[in-house]
Simulated assay, not measured.
Amino acid sequence: MENKKWNNRKIKDGALQGLIYLSTVLTVAILAVIIGFILYKGIPGINLNFVTRMWDDKTTFVNIETKEAPGNNSNGAYVGSLGITLAQDGEKIIISHIDSDSPVKTATNMKKEAYPLKEKDVILKAGSAAIDKMTPQEAAAAIKDGTGTIRIKVLRPGGGIVPMLVSTIYIILLSLVIAAPIGISSAIYLNEYAKRGRILSLIRFAIQNLAGIPSIIYGLFGMLVFVQLLKMQYSILAGALTLSIMLLPTIISTTEEALKEIPKAYRESSFGLGATKLQTIAKIILPGALPGILVAIILSIGRIVGESAALIWTAGTVAQIPGGLVGGKAAAATLTTKMYWLIKESGDLATASSIAVVLLVLIIALNVASKMITRVFLKKKGTN
């Protein structure tokens, strides 16, 4: 009888262990397939231009003070008065090389602002000559050598993620500046000052429920309150305020758990030495809970980076570097919102996957930073 029970228990344990292994393999396989698909589609589109250029093409008229051209040059695509070499790129004429003393480096636009030309810029027109479909030699001949001022129409190719990357960084910084002090202060109050009772339980219950609300609802709230009622329009400030509200439950809960880990004896010892409650919190409790607080902040950064629904309704989807905190020029698309619109509007899966690769790298970097920071502070705590 005992042997039968033992055999049944062994069978159950083996089945349970097999189920655990199967679940682990299935989870890893799904994760590998997702990441592998994103890398397969996205890596071919990642290059230097992708991470350094603006998103949209930009056409600009520039004025250039030409220099004295050399007498002879064997390179028929070289423009001596501008110190540039032209090349063919499909049907376009691009600048393939710029001399160190080239006057195009001091070019100005129509507002008399500095607009230095760069390699890979496309030359569409020089003076009255349209050269966009010429050969490099014909284009060089059309740009007359000599001295004086020449006006050139230049196309600077886009296709880069710089505006979305900058907007993402702005949103991260603004959201944390708003949410972190409020969330940490609230956690300190709930754990150190608030009296135990129904009101405190109700507050914690509300915080837990706030963490489970879909982000699209936060987005609608942000659009109604910040964008329309407070007239911030689509802007990074409206987006940051909306995300700050979303982050509060995470920061409060994680920080409060970190504060609870500090032994009660530390508080009592501090009070016994004559320290006030505020001094105890500032000198004893917060330093001890700092690793947990940093984890809360880094987790919040991860949520900001991955958020799209709330930002579409508050920050907008314009691929530009924000020109302020509020107003039309402050509307901006983050990496995730741009990826969403690429799939929705144009079905550009390749570019969206390239942006996803950048997001994966960013999230992995944040996780590594979280572990490193936590390890450093725990080591310092152990030595002290």
Rank of each mutant, 00 (worst) to 15 (best):
I343N: 08
N72Q: 12
S175F: 02
E261Y: 04
I131E: 09
A369M: 14
R267T: 00
F50E: 06
K41T: 13
K125A: 11
K144W: 09
G159P: 05
G146Y: 05
T147L: 04
S175T: 06
Y340L: 14
G158K: 04
G183E: 05
S354P: 06
L117S: 03
P249H: 08
N49S: 15
R198C: 07
S354M: 11
W55S: 11
N7M: 13
K277I: 01
L26K: 05
A275G: 01
Y40C: 04
L230S: 05
K120E: 13
A289I: 03
L241K: 07
F221R: 03
Q137W: 08
L243M: 06
K10T: 05
P322L: 14
I199A: 09
A126D: 10
N3R: 08
F205W: 13
D101K: 02
G239F: 09
M134Y: 06
V326P: 07
Y189P: 07
D13M: 12
E68K: 12
G146M: 05
E261R: 03
E119T: 15
M246E: 01
L155C: 02
I143Q: 13
A319R: 14
A315W: 06
L16H: 14
Y189W: 07
T314E: 00
F205D: 11
L335A: 03
M339Q: 13
R267C: 02
P181Q: 11
I46G: 12
K338E: 05
I95Y: 04
T250L: 14
I297V: 15
V104M: 02
I281P: 01
A69D: 09
F221C: 00
D89M: 03
T317V: 15
I30H: 02
E345N: 02
L230Y: 08
I343W: 03
M1C: 06
N63W: 08
K105W: 00
G45E: 09
P103A: 06
P249G: 08
N63G: 07
V295K: 13
F61C: 07
I172Q: 10
K195T: 07
